[in-house]
Amino acid sequence: MCLGLPMTIVETDGISALCEFRGEQRRVSVLLLSHPPAGAHVLVYIDTAIRLLEKEEACLIAAAIDGLGAALDGNDFDCFFADLIDREPQLPAHLLTD
């Protein structure tokens, strides 16, 4: 299984960027994005930044990854998905019908 990681751009030359997530750094392609600046949060999949993230969304994705790890370890994981507790799932806008 492959997961996209929320990473922060440390430095970039417009073609690739040095990105960081939890102390791990890797160089990724940023060719799919329009010149993201240092400090920007990006979703990285297979060493390619595929989209920009707001800081809040990056934090939610990081928490979800922690929640998956907790679930795999047999630990309580509800606290990692606080944004989903006590609400019904909602479809993204592009999947809603009139």
Score class of each variant (00 low, 15 high):
Leu53Lys: 12
Gly23Glu: 09
Leu33Ile: 12
Leu43Trp: 05
Ile85Val: 15
Leu33Asp: 14
Ser34Ile: 12
Val28Ile: 08
Asp47Glu: 05
Gln25Met: 05
Ile46Cys: 03
Val44Met: 05
Val28Pro: 00
Asp66Pro: 01
Glu54Arg: 14
Val30Cys: 08
Val28Glu: 01
Glu56Cys: 07
Leu91Glu: 06
Arg26Gly: 00
Cys79Val: 13
Asp13Gly: 05
Gly23Cys: 07
Ile9Gly: 00
Arg27Ala: 05
Gly39Leu: 01
Ala58His: 06
Ser29Val: 00
Ala71His: 12
His41Val: 00
Asp76Glu: 15
Leu91Ser: 07
Gly67Ala: 09
Glu56Phe: 04
Gly74Gln: 11
Gly74Met: 14
Thr48Cys: 04
Gly67Pro: 04
Ala58Gln: 04
Asp78Val: 15
Gln90His: 04
His94Pro: 01
Gln90Ala: 11
Leu95Cys: 03
Ile61Glu: 07
Leu68Met: 12
Leu18Ala: 09
Ser16Phe: 08
Leu91Phe: 03
Val10Tyr: 00
Arg22Lys: 09
Val30Pro: 05
Ala64Gln: 10
Gly74Glu: 12
Asp66Phe: 08
Glu56Thr: 14
Phe81His: 12
Phe77Val: 07
Gly69Ser: 08
Leu91Val: 02
Ile61Ala: 04
Ala93Gln: 11
Pro36Leu: 08
Val44Cys: 04
Leu31Ala: 13
Pro36Ala: 14
Arg87His: 06
Leu18Ile: 10
Arg26Ile: 04
Ser34Gln: 15
Gly14Asn: 14
Leu68Trp: 06
Ser16Met: 09
Ala40Leu: 02
Ala58Cys: 09
Ala71Asp: 08
Ile50Gln: 07
Val28His: 00
Ala71Trp: 12
Leu32Gln: 13
Leu68Lys: 11
Leu31Asn: 12
Glu56Ser: 15
Ala58Asn: 06
Leu53Gly: 12
Asn75Pro: 01
Ser29His: 02
Leu43Gly: 03
Leu43Val: 03
Cys79Gly: 06
Cys79Lys: 14
Gln90Pro: 00
Ile15Asp: 10
Asp13Trp: 01
Arg22Tyr: 04
Leu60Gly: 05
Val28Ser: 01
Glu56Ala: 15
Glu20Lys: 07
Phe77Ile: 03
Thr12Gly: 04
Asp47Phe: 03
Asp73Lys: 15
Val30Arg: 10
Leu68Asp: 08
Asp66Arg: 09
Ala64Asp: 13
Leu52Arg: 13
Asp73Trp: 04
Arg51Trp: 04
Val42Tyr: 01
Glu56His: 15
Gly67Val: 13
Gly74Ser: 13
Leu68Phe: 10
Ile85Pro: 08
Ala49Arg: 01
Cys79Arg: 14
Leu52Glu: 11
Leu52Gly: 10
Ala38Met: 02
Glu54Asp: 15
Leu52Pro: 03
Ala93His: 08
Lys55Thr: 15
Ala93Glu: 13
Lys55Gly: 04
Glu20Phe: 00
Ala63Phe: 05
Arg22Gln: 11
Ser16Thr: 14
Asp86Met: 07
Glu56Trp: 11
Asp78Tyr: 13
Tyr45Phe: 09
Leu68Ser: 06
